[in-house]
Computed example of a mutant assay.
Amino acid sequence: MGGLVVVGVDGSASGLAAVEEAAREARWRGAALRVVHAFIWARMPVPLGPSPYGPPAGGLRNMADRLVAEGVERASSTAPEVEVGSAVVSGEPLTVLEAESRGADLVVVGSRGMGGFVGLMVGSTAVHLAAHGRCPVLVVREPSHAGGPVLVGVDGSPASEAAVDFAFAEAALRGSGVLALHAYTPWNAPLPPPQDPSMPYANPPGAVTAAEERLLAEALAGRREIYPGVPVEHAVVRGDTRKALIEASASARILAVGARGRGGFKGLLLGSVSQAMLHHAHCPVAVVRGSGTGA
């Protein structure tokens, strides 16, 4: 298979959890792993080397090297068979990781880094990278649930189509099934054509639900042939999309969502549903950009 998985580290517990998840992803994919630390201090007028009055191993640069070495060690202990490289790159984390995403198949980050505000469920780097990354971005909030399915949110948008592709590929790699969930309300569901032309709003009971079930079936069309070994469950839920996905994520290995759905405002790179998942899902969240999101 091959390819490259990139993981960002900053010395936080969340970052090390991301390293473990990234190492497993690299193993499943047969890919190399690159452990990256964004070294912002190099851009500032501060001494980087050890103090003449301190130990030789002190200083900001040595600290950055130790963070990366710790990440490499954690990755190697998690997946010894994976080829692990590393780099300390000068720059702001979002800029560095966005650049790294241009040559990667997947970028993995923790939900909150060392610089986050206390009480935040997910940090700004994770949110902004999910919006701007050039490949799927996996944000590790909570551990994967062993034995659960790969959950994917489906709404028929281009980014949702990309998320479906990602979910099936992930399920095949992990040896799990897919749970494809589509949620709707009477306010966001397009009405099917009226059955009686003389009554423009007349539809038989269940017509809207049937139309939403067709949307889900069409979004999944052809995937069974590509991934015949992946079991698939469908769920069409009448209710709030965010609530439905958060509840389903409690038993999922991973959740895949599009960066921006069909109901989002034009120009937004990250929609309200994907942002809510980053903050509240009970499993790692993969945000996948589609052809309609400016990727």
Results as ranks from 00 to 15, higher is better:
198 S>Q: 10
292 G>C: 00
55 P>E: 13
215 L>T: 01
253 R>C: 09
105 D>T: 01
221 A>Y: 07
149 P>K: 08
282 H>L: 15
98 E>N: 07
132 H>Y: 06
247 E>I: 07
154 V>I: 03
265 F>S: 15
111 S>H: 05
154 V>P: 01
108 V>M: 00
123 G>A: 01
127 V>C: 10
108 V>D: 00
2 G>S: 14
82 V>M: 01
7 V>Q: 09
78 T>E: 09
238 R>M: 13
218 E>F: 01
267 G>P: 11
58 G>H: 11
125 T>P: 13
268 L>I: 10
76 S>K: 12
50 P>G: 07
40 I>D: 15
260 R>S: 14
218 E>S: 08
86 S>T: 06
116 G>F: 05
114 M>V: 14
108 V>P: 00
244 A>F: 11
155 D>C: 02
259 A>E: 07
32 A>E: 04
95 T>Y: 14
161 E>Q: 13
161 E>C: 12
241 T>Q: 00
25 E>G: 12
273 V>F: 03
77 S>A: 14
108 V>Y: 02
187 W>A: 10
261 G>E: 01
135 C>T: 11
190 P>E: 10
194 P>Q: 00
32 A>M: 02
204 P>W: 15
222 G>A: 09
169 A>T: 12
284 P>Y: 00
80 P>G: 00
260 R>L: 04
193 P>C: 00
